[in-house]
């Protein structure tokens, strides 16, 4: 998939002037590749995902090939920064909703709810759920369609560490079973290193790519130690500008 965004600007609203958010951002995704997009808050990462998802057609450039539907079932699973569940539908109904009726079997929906640990909460309405549980429903909703492209916008923030790690393992095991291209936005470099095949660092605004690094540690070797060493080496090798991008703290 070739993403080529020459420019993306938001029009002026009231006192706030027009803002150029993305500029000269070129990124190609190989099929089955896990790309971590890393950058400071507010630099335009979410805007990038919205453009790739086809939610925002108002930009200069192109995304090719545009994701096509496979016989009525969606190909993009989008895990938004907020869960964006329908509060008037139960957990199970929220997940079932995105599947075409012929695929929405009890078995399929039940399995994915089990996998994210929500089997007991299937008939609960979302505003009875904790933030972490809502996030897990959003993950189940994105996973259940078995997407070809998975867009994830900081999906594991505000989940406790144990649950987040379990969900990361779930994500990786799902990717093992079915090759899926992933565009994963995060502002946590450790998370990016522990999950991605390749890390793309954005700076901004306007955001462009300031660095691209392949993570050359085997998946099963990515423990706390190796991730930490990789991070230290990365920050060490990078020039001053890159260090600013990689290490905003």
């Amino acid at each position: 998939m070739e993403i080529d965004i020459r420019s993306k600007r938001y029009p002026a609203v009231g006192a706030a002037g027009a803002r150029l958010v993305l500029e000269n951002l070129r990124l190609s995704l190989r099929f089955g590749e896990f790309v971590g997009v890393f950058g400071p808050s507010g630099c335009g990462k979410t805007t990038l995902l919205n453009i790739v998802a086809g939610l925002d057609p108002d930009f200069q450039g192109s995304v090719r090939p545009a994701p096509a539907d496979r016989d009525g079932s969606p190909v993009i699973g989008y895990v938004f920064q907020n869960p964006r569940l329908l509060p008037w539908r139960t957990v199970e109904e929220n997940v079932r909703l995105v599947l075409p009726s012929h695929l929405a079997t009890d078995d399929r929906v039940g399995k994915i709810l089990e996998a994210v640990g929500l089997a007991d909460a299937r008939h609960v309405y979302p505003n009875r759920l904790s933030v972490g549980m809502s996030r897990r429903v959003a993950l189940a909703r994105a996973f259940v369609i078995e997407p070809e492209l998975l867009l994830m916008d900081e999906p594991f923030v505000s989940i406790d560490v144990t649950a987040a790690n379990r969900l990361r393992r779930l994500l990786l095991s799902m990717l093992d079973r079915r090759p899926t291209t992933v565009l994963f936005v995060t502002h946590d470099l450790r998370e990016a290193i522990s999950l991605a095949d390749r890390i793309v660092a954005l700076s901004g605004p306007p955001a462009g790519i300031v660095a691209e690094v392949a993570v050359d540690i085997a998946r099963d070797q990515r423990t706390g130690d190796t991730v930490e060493r990789f991070r230290a080496r990365l920050l060490d090798e990078c020039g001053e500008t890159l260090r600013a991008a990689f290490d905003p703290e």
């Binding site: 998802a53 989008y78 938004f80 109904e93």
Partner: peptide
């Protein structure tokens, strides 16, 4: 707009979008 975008990105049919969203 958030739930409408959700419906759009998951390619919900017109009927489903109307009924559920």
């Amino acid at each position: 707009p958030d739930t409408l975008e959700m419906a759009q990105s998951f390619r919900l049919s017109r009927g489903r979008n109307l009924r559920h969203v």
